[in-house]
Amino acid sequence: MKIAIASGKGGTGKTTFALALFLANSDRSVFLDCDVEEPNAHLFLKGIEKQKDVVQLLIPKVNADLCNQCGLCVKSCQFNALAMAGKAGVLVFNELCHSCGACTLICPTGAIQDVETPVGEISIYDLKGGAEFLSGRLKVGHSAAPAVIQAVKKHPSTTPYTHHIIDSPPGTSCSFVTSVSGADFVILVTEPTPFGLHDLKLAVEGVENLKLPYAVVVNRVREKDHLIKKYCAEKNIKILLELEEDRRVAEMYSKGGTLLEVLPDLKEKLNLLLSDLEDQVGANP
């Protein structure tokens, strides 16, 4: 089962929750840090990096000897990744290229060749107790986040695991869509503030567009009744779990600790939660 953990925006405790869910079930799951622009799970999981793979994309390279400077490639690029700089010829901005191949196709002189170019990397870590986790990292400034996310999700070392816990990038961008699509279930993490509600609504819209089953986890709950509860009741969205506001959690987090260290009782709850999801997904394949 593939479970994507997402939120409309950063700072809701998405990663904290995703890590706890993983650690409570680390005997049967693998953790995928797909927040490739700012991966941070490795700061908390403290694994030993045992393998590093490069993620490559085909990016055009122009052979100046063959180029007649017709400019067709520049016009064909939808992503502003090419420019015709007078006598200097065609410039390629690797970080903007989406590897669509249009320029190579259109070039009348065969001056463009697609070359495998690194755009990011995937690290595979070993954890104490035999668990593993993967972390994708996009090269700074690159726009190829979806390619790196895909590569993490499809990495061969994820196959032995029953459950994939996918920490998705915040927002409702291309990267968000890439990391949640194909998930069997999406958990949206939010908090009971007006901002939290606003972002949750965006995230709900995102997962509903993708027609994925989802439910909500509310973090930093202070009062029994709150606006997320009201919204979820109106929309008939299930709240899987509420985590109470706890100063110790923030303290632990700032020291690089995890939720389970503060709240050991949570482990069993998260164990059950995963099993429940399993039943649910199994029942509605």
Partner: peptide, 18 residues
Amino acid sequence: QNMQANQGAGIQSAQNIL
């Protein structure tokens, strides 16, 4: 500007200058 692209506006502007 190429409206489909949300990045590279500076490159496109530079191209227009040229």
